[in-house]
Design a protein around this nucleic acid. Structure first.
Lengths: 242, 242
DNA sequence: CGCGTGTTTGAAACCGCTCAATGACTGTGG
DNA sequence: CCACAGTCATTGAGCGGTTTCAAACACGCG
């Protein structure tokens, strides 16, 4: 059975057996973090890269007057602090949407592996780039897409990300997120998120119910959102075929 | 006289004489590009990193239905394709707002210098990180700031960036950008950008006239925008003291 | 049971958009 | 030199998408 680390990286770049072996030899520590809590405050500061085993988290920034902007959603398999591994430019916090089970890789050991295996290093770069690329796409959403398009686009994004990590698990996936959090991510009020989700449901496109997102018609949903999965940087485009 | 490359990188990290010498020994080619044109279409593809000597440009993404989202503004001294130097994940175009004079550094030669001088390499990372960090801040603006706050914040950002690159050239700086372009960047209609600029003028905060932005009251402007320059990653915080 | 959290819906207000028209400026061709 | 077209800035009027305020409802939990 391949490790979560290898599984994640191979979403971006196929690895050789030697690459895989190097990564799988890495030790890691488990961390368990209660739901709705500040992740950074609990984790040992620096020196490690953490990957989500189970649970959901978000990156966010808080304005001085209390407004909160969520700038990224992290699902199982994602790294939550890859950026800090590269440079120490914090600026944002990480918040657990659910209870989290994390795997923490020692940064120094990881670095050694990456220096020995350039292809593994490239895969990590890709993973980081994909994050930035998603943020870029959110920028487009917030700037140019309507509420309906924004939420539809977010659903498409998460659907593809789930599908790629889980190798196509059907048209329903776990999404334990409140409407308030969707609003904080997409720049909408909670109330309007509610109405928007209702509209998507009534149009027969997607349905969110008790933490489960059901895709009713991916083609129409992607069409409405002007969603094109290439920006996610996945090498494997199976998710592209709805 | 120090080269533009060194001057830019030293905004992020102080360099040693050896670092500087290595960078200044780099050859570069000049490129001149007409105003209002697609930069990528003209530049020799790949293999080079370009820095703006004079002129202004923007990074943007176009949606299939024609809507355009500007995701970054580049001013003299900035690199326009640093990201592509790291990974080939295009997705966005570069557009010259004015006529551009570019310096093109050969990517392979630059890479050699950076491998020999880790501190220079780190400065380049910082420059790239700063770009991402600005995009992140725009995400916050688009998601959570009002039109007035957004435009005010953009003005603060550009003011500080100008000040740092030009070592504090006073409270007026060149900003040859149309109101339509401000709108495409901040997710506002042209008409509303106009009204917003009028409001800022009437409040005695900032004034944009024939391509010159004049800061009338930086403190109040920054306060309105909830602007805090740390995200720009500059080591030199003189711009912080208004 | 009562409480807290999250969802749902209605009504009214508002911010920002669209449509439309005018004026200022610039470059172009006659 | 003037007429013309094109781009950009400016302003008014009206519409509409989204927000805010408010209240009810559903659900899980101690």
């Amino acid at each position: 059975m391949t490790s979560a680390l290898v599984r994640k990286l191979e979403c971006y770049l196929p690895l050789s057996d030697v690459d895989r072996a190097g990564l799988e030899a890495l030790q890691f520590k488990f961390h368990s973090i209660a739901a709705k809590s500040e992740v950074e405050a609990i984790l040992p500061a620096g020196g490690a890269v953490h990957q989500i085993q189970t649970g959901y988290a978000c990156r966010y920034r808080q304005l001085p007057d209390g407004r909160r902007q969520i700038s990224g959603l992290m699902i199982p398999g994602d790294f939550i602090d890859l950026r800090k591994f590269v440079v120490t430019g914090a600026e944002h916090g990480v918040f657990g949407l659910t209870e989290l089970a994390l795997m923490g890789y020692d940064a120094a050991s990881l670095l050694r592996v990456l220096e020995a295996r350039p292809r593994s290093a490239q895969a990590v770069w890709r993973a980081l780039l994909a994050e930035e690329s998603i943020a870029q796409e959110w920028l487009v959403s917030l700037g140019k897409r309507s509420a309906l398009e924004r939420v539809a686009h977010l659903i498409c994004e998460l659907y593809v990300r789930h599908t790629v990590m889980n190798e196509g698990a059907g048209r329903t996936f776990t999404l334990p997120i409140t409407q308030r959090e969707i609003g904080d991510a997409m720049g909408l009020s909670t109330v309007h998120v509610n109405r928007t989700l209702r509209e998507l449901r009534q149009r027969g496109l997607a349905k969110l119910q008790s933490g489960q997102m059901e895709i009713l018609n991916f083609e129409k949903l992607a069409d409405l959102a002007m969603f094109s999965p290439t920006y996610l940087q996945f090498r494997n485009r199976t998710a592209n075929r709805h």
